[in-house]
Design a binder for these strands. Structure first.
Length: 435
RNA sequence: CGGGGUGUAGUAUACCGGUAGUACAUCUGCUUUGGGAGCAGACAGACCGAGUUCAAUUCUCGGCACCCCGACCA
């Protein structure tokens, strides 16, 4: 799209009261706007990133056999009383209407998905399966903080799986560990993200979190570099300060942020709703559940924390708002820069390459500074200089490498920008085809 | 929810018990055009309430909001 038509604008300075790197950069670059503490609007550029993250997750959940649904935010009080969480969940938003009827604003959706599934599932033949959604969650954080990392309203992908026995649940749960690792890999934070043992599980005694190492994190984890797993501080003493996989006590302590987690719920929620199935003998059996969450905004914010530099945002290829930032630089002796840029822009669009064209009547310095701030992977400059050589100038946002390339080389390098998806192989668990 | 800090134009800030100045942004004109330009002009501001005072944006109290630390949590 043409940058001159973006209704949002980048700013030279970040809001004075923001300390969090992700908030400073995202607000300055015009990706998000803060409505109130912990509540953010995603602006056109930010939403493109968020949607790219969502699509990665959607592709991976579908490959893991997930079926996408969309449940409401407004939940009847009765469902939450059934599980006891109307009283026990401190950060539950409760709203009442003019007739006094009380509702919960959903912080998670077990109370909705279980009664839903109960209507359709009654036989061992219906199992297993999983359903997921992308949904705004509401949690009454006493203290929202760290920019978009800890909000009161945020978008979460929550998936729920349903199984006939523990073996089946366990194998699906194991599979999801791999699926999650791939999501974070594709989002560009795979190298720094660790499968982390945490409290709260049932059959394995543990739940598993995905923790990304960054100073902006709120958790302390103990990493075993041999096994490439970590342990959350909250349970490290239970484990005798040792790696749960190899038993090593040489663990590296890091600060990290939780970008996802998976739980084996077993019958925690199916029992109160009496969610059962009939087995081959016609006997009534409890359905076992797993749940799997990823906070989209938190992934986005974590990427900013981990990859952003002193010049601004830096987006991994797969989630960047655009693949190419096309920057035209005008000069006194207009050598046909506009015409040439327009031609390139049209060709990029024709080839389906997402391009942001800085067509504003601004000076070079401002355009370059802003291009760095926006963090689009590849910058392509058209100016009198480049035209004189019959070439284009490219700059890699990550490495800073600048080169003069001809048209063919240009499309070559754009291709390599887009090629990351092909690295993802076929699904080894469900047999679903590669992307 | 406990502790601390901060509220001045769209943004960042300055000064002051006598109603506010600067920069960027925006608008007009001219110049400029490869790393956040220059000149001239224009628009635009004291979180809310109470108190003290001849006079409050300034001092006091209360409220609200935001940020940070802690507790809690995706």
């Amino acid at each position: 799209m043409r940058q001159s038509q973006l209704f949002t604008k980048a700013r030279k300075e970040a809001p004075a009261d923001e300390v969090a790197k992700n908030a400073k950069l995202l607000i300055r670059a015009g990706f998000v706007d803060k409505l109130q503490a912990g509540v953010y609007t995603y602006l056109p550029l930010g939403l493109r990133v968020l949607k790219n993250i969502e699509n990665i997750i959607r592709e991976e959940m579908n490959r893991a056999g997930g079926q996408e649904i969309l449940m409401p935010s407004l939940h009847p009080k009765e469902n939450w009383q059934t599980t006891g969480r109307w009283e026990t969940m401190d950060d539950l938003y409760k709203v009442s209407d003019s007739s006094g009827r009380e509702n919960a604003l959903g912080p998670t959706h077990e109370e909705v998905v279980v009664p839903l599934v109960k209507q359709f599932v009654s036989s061992y033949r219906d199992l297993p399966f999983s359903a997921y959604q992308f949904q705004n969650k509401f949690r009454m954080e006493l203290r929202a903080k760290s920019g978009i990392l800890r909000g009161r309203e945020f978008i979460m992908k929550d998936m729920y799986s349903f199984h006939r026995d523990e073996t089946d649940l366990a194998s699906y749960y194991e599979m999801m560990k791999g699926v999650y690792a791939r999501v974070f890999e594709r989002a560009g934070i795979g190298e720094r993200t660790y499968l982390t043992y945490a409290s709260g599980g049932s059959f394995s005694k543990y739940s598993h979190e995905f923790q990304t190492v960054t100073p902006a994190g709120e958790d302390t984890i103990y990493i075993c570099d041999n096994c490439r797993v970590a342990v959350n501080k909250e349970i490290i003493e239970d484990l005798n300060n040792a790696c749960p996989v190899c038993g090593s006590k040489e663990l590296r302590v890091e600060t990290a942020i939780e970008v996802g987690n998976i739980f084996d719920l077993k019958t925690r929620f199916s029992a109160p709703f009496k969610l059962t199935y009939k087995d081959e003998e016609g006997a009534e059996q409890p359905i076992l559940m797993g749940c799997y969450g990823i906070g989209l905004g938190r992934v986005l914010g974590t990427v900013v924390e981990v990859l952003g530099d002193e010049k601004g945002l830096v987006w991994p290829r797969e989630i960047a708002p655009f693949a190419v930032h096309l920057v035209e630089i005008f000069s006194a002796d207009d050598a046909g820069v506009r015409v040439e840029t327009q031609m390139l822009y049209d060709e990029l669009l024709l080839k389906g390459i997402e391009v942001l064209w800085d067509d504003r009547d601004a000076r070079a310095g401002e355009k370059f500074a802003e291009s760095d701030l926006l963090g689009i992977p590849l910058r392509v400059v058209v100016s009198a200089k480049t035209l004189a050589q019959g070439k284009f100038e490219t700059k890699d946002r990550v490495t800073g490498e600048v080169s003069m390339v001809d048209r063919e080389e240009l499309f070559q390098s754009i291709k390599s920008v887009k090629s990351i998806k092909s690295k993802v192989g076929p699904d080894s668990y469900t047999g679903e085809p590669a992307l």
